[in-house]
Design a binder for these strands. Structure first.
Length: 116
DNA sequence: ATTTTGACGACGT
DNA sequence: GACGTCGCCAAAA
């Protein structure tokens, strides 16, 4: 038998979590990584997203930002403006690629609970 | 096979 | 809070 040394599911899991992000909310790569048990592999989350749109354009990658609430990956979208535009459409305020009230719109997959 | 890079994060200064 | 450095792991050169 072949031992699963690697975790091909890791990438899939990332996509699943991103899909679970409620509208008008955002999360960070590190939060997702931590949720998957790879807290120190936040980079892998971003790397997974890199190929995500290749087979899943519905993936709301625009709701995933770095821990600072900065649209670090906006340059990877087809149109550099699409990411910010979508966020603002969902009620998220973005100024200079920086999400305003990031703490309020932040959604942690670990909690998944509605807070005030 | 080795080196560099990358949609990040934590820690030290 | 800004800046520099290290760690993490996978893909590209």
């Amino acid at each position: 038998m072949k031992e699963e040394k690697d975790d091909p599911n890791f990438f899939d899991l990332v996509y699943q979590v991103v899909k679970l992000i409620p509208e008008g909310r955002v999360t960070s790569y590190g939060a997702i990584a931590k949720y998957l048990g790879a807290a120190r592999s936040a980079r892998m989350v971003g790397w997974a997203m890199n190929g995500s749109h290749a087979f899943d354009e519905t993936l709301p990658a625009h709701r995933v930002v770095n821990r600072s609430g900065l649209l670090s990956g906006k340059h990877h979208f087809a149109n550099g403006e699409s990411m910010q535009d979508r966020l603002e459409k969902e009620g998220i305020r973005v100024v200079n690629d920086q999400i305003q009230d990031f703490k309020q719109v932040f959604w942690d997959p670990n909690e998944g609970l509605t807070y005030e």
